[in-house]
Write a protein that binds this DNA or RNA. Sequence first.
DNA 1: AAAGAATATTCGTGTCAAGGAATATTCGTG
DNA 2: CACGAATATTCCTTGACACGAATATTCTTT
Lengths: 112, 112
Amino acid sequence: MHATFAALADPNRLRIIELLRSGPKPVNDLVAELDVTQPQVSKHLRVLRDAGLVDVEAKAQQRLYELRPDGLKKLHAWVEQYRALWDARLDAMDELVSELVREEKNRGRKKH
Amino acid sequence: MHATFAALADPNRLRIIELLRSGPKPVNDLVAELDVTQPQVSKHLRVLRDAGLVDVEAKAQQRLYELRPDGLKKLHAWVEQYRALWDARLDAMDELVSELVREEKNRGRKKH
DNA sequence: AAAGAATATTCGTGTCAAGGAATATTCGTG
DNA sequence: CACGAATATTCCTTGACACGAATATTCTTT
C-alpha cells in the first residue's frame, strides 16, 4: 500500500494520473501538458505502471496509457476504512463490521 | 494533495495512521508497536501533523495523537473522483458532474 | 528545586530517487 | 532497408530524507 502512496507522492506523477482521468493518452500528450522532458515522463509512467496505477496499450509507435481501475479501487478501499471518522452516520455500520470481525476470529473456538 | 501522499509514502508513517484507527494513542504506545526508536516516531508524527493527517492533545507529559478527519476526508474526496473507473453504475453521475462544471465555467459569458 | 518520565529537536551520515543528457528501441513509411 | 516518429533506457549528479546518536524540552512528583 505504501508503494501506491509513494507513486502518487511525486507532483508530476500525480498530475499524470489526473490528466488520464479524461481518458487514455499517448505519451506526447502528457509531455505537452507537463513541462517535463519526454524521458522524464516515460520514467514516471514506468513508476506508475509498476505501482499498478496505469496500463499501456501499444498503438503503432504510440503507447496509450490509461488508468487501471484495480489500483485506484484498492486505494479507495483503504481510505474507506476511515469513513467513520468524518461520516457520523456510519458509526453504527462500523460497529457492525467490528462485530462481524470478532465473530470471524472466534470461529471454531470453544468460547463464543 | 501530493504532500498528503508523500506523508503516507513512508511505511512507518502509514503504519502509524493504521494504528491510530483504533483511537488516540500516546507516543510510547506507537513506539512499542513499531520497532522504531522514539525520536523517529516523534519525527514521523511531526510530518503527519504538518500534512494535516493527525492532531495532538497534551495530557500531562503525554501527547495523545489522533487522526484528523479533515485530512482523510480530502483524500477520500480525491479518490472518489475516479469512482466511475470501477463502478459502472456511476457513469451517468459522472456525466452530470461534467455538465455542471461546464455550466459553471460559462457563467457570466455571452455564449450559453 | 531536583529528579525522572514522556516527548521533541538537532546534527551528521548514508541512501535513494528525480532531473538532465545522451543513446537505444520500436514501428510505420518510402 | 534506410529514415523518421514515438517512446524507453542508461549513466551521472545533486538534493531530499530516513536513521542513529546525542541532547533539549515539558511536566509531574517529592
